[in-house]
Amino acid sequence: MATAHSKTAARFMISPAVVLLLAWMIVPLAMTIYFSFLRYSLMSPGEETFAGWDNYRYFLTDPAFFSAFTNTIVLVVGVLLITVVLGIALANLLDQPMWGQGIVRILVIAPFFVMPTVSALVWKNMFMDPVNGLFAHAAKALGLQPFEFLTHAPLASIIMIVSWQWLPFATLILLTAMQSLDQEQLEAAEMDGASWWRRFFYIVLPHLSRAITVVVLIQTIFLLSVFAEILVTTNGGPGTASTNITYLVYAQSLLQFDVGGGSAGGIVAVILANIVAIFLMRMIGKNLEA
């Protein structure tokens, strides 16, 4: 149906978006790569010298990098496990007939719309604070010693906060997928005497597999870049106990003014994210053809 004229026009109309995104992707990324090979401090501008692979060597052999790397993986995997397992359970529950389903849905989905700085501060101060937090009150009421969440289990506490934010997302996506499940298939299986567990493992779970993959991949993209929650709760500490790669790069470049080292870290982060992105892109690409 497309004429030569409309094809030219189409190309013209798509170009602003393409040019802007291309610029956004290439210019800063090229600058980061360039900086990563320089000895460049914000404290002494104009004295940049070529550093070869030094920045990468320092960044990758820095003990802080190793702990940031493991923390990043623990954070991503921890939040994924919690949100996917609970999300499947919740989606199953919310799919059952009940009174006030719409309202329960609204209650469950709400945390996703709370900005990260608010949820982190509310959890940090009003729940996890060892003196005045709600958990401390509860512990004292039970005659227990209040637990200092952010001092003794900083990473676990952040995993909890981030899971609270992402559980609604996983639940909503999985619930949407649940609703497209053919009920008659389940009923047939039930009539044939299949137990609840067998029905869940052989019918429901395979049906959800695609949605689960999507949840895992999309959350991974966002979870690799968790930042605000760490900044306002622990500042990455104590020590580097709750520093992830995103926070480490931020600290290196904007707190220690080491542009070269921070840039090398940024490139490492890009490479790690790309590994995940390749899988996600394949998945979505397949869907586009279908």
């Binding site: 600058m31 870049s225 542009v259 940024g266």
Partner: peptide
């Protein structure tokens, strides 16, 4: 299709990768 996929891929660039520039 390639353009769409490529646009999506820019979303996967972690922000720290371009923070400094």
């Amino acid at each position: 299709k390639d353009v769409l996929m490529w646009m999506l891929s820019t979303k996967m660039l972690p922000p720290v990768g371009v923070l400094i520039p």
